[in-house]
Amino acid sequence: MTKPAPPPHPGFGAFGKIHREFFDAFDDGSWQPVAGYTGVEEKILSGSLDPVTRRGAVTRLGRWAPGAAVDHPVSHDWCEEVFIVSGSLKLGTLAAKAEAVRLPFGTYAVRPPHIIHGPFFSDEGCLLIEFLYYPPAP
């Protein structure tokens, strides 16, 4: 029998994150394919997003297999911060590989909602840490 998830810690306010102490974020469990993306997986480390109420925050790892690609620009209604931990991502398409811009490990992006970004692909694969959140109400 599984235990119910603990309630969010009140110190996180509207983000509704649960207090967790150090754990192995790289273990092989809990990786899920990202819908609509071939070769891209995510592992939620904390939090959740609710697109209906436009509330919440997520910290997740993104793992791109070598050759994974998103061949079209994307946009979403939450804020996003992305840091490339290892490997590299390329800004561009596989069809126009020679013109693609390489984004090496250590590269960071921060975006408000509705910013169009991509397409992307990764020749060697990469690991990202991402922070996704809805902006607080003014």
Rank of each mutant, 00 (worst) to 15 (best):
I129G: 02
V110I: 10
P6Q: 08
P113Y: 03
L91Y: 15
A98G: 07
P73Y: 03
P66Q: 01
L91T: 13
S30V: 10
P51E: 06
D71I: 02
D27I: 10
G11C: 14
S30L: 15
K17G: 13
G106C: 07
W78Q: 12
P8H: 06
T38A: 15
S88D: 08
F121S: 01
R54G: 02
E124C: 01
F105A: 14
G62F: 00
W31D: 08
G11I: 13
I116R: 11
E99F: 05
P51R: 05
G13N: 06
G87A: 09
G56M: 09
G36C: 07
L132T: 05
L128D: 03
M1L: 15
A14R: 01
G39P: 13
A95K: 06
M1Y: 12
G39H: 12
K90F: 14
E130W: 03
I84Q: 08
S30W: 12
L94Y: 06
T93F: 08
H114I: 01
L132N: 12
P119D: 09
R60S: 11
R55G: 00
F105G: 09
P6G: 05
H72W: 10
E21L: 14
A57W: 00
P112N: 07
L132K: 09
A69F: 01
G13M: 03
K90D: 12
R55S: 10
G29P: 02
P112S: 13
G13A: 08
G56Q: 09
S86A: 15
E99R: 10
G39T: 13
V40P: 07
P135A: 08
P136D: 08
S75R: 12
I84S: 05
E81F: 06
G36R: 04
E80I: 08
E41A: 01
P104V: 13
P73H: 04
D71H: 05
G16S: 14
R54D: 01
R54F: 00
W78I: 06
I18R: 15
Y134H: 09
D77R: 13
L49C: 07
V52H: 13
E41G: 00
H117Q: 12
P4K: 14
E41Q: 06
A14W: 00
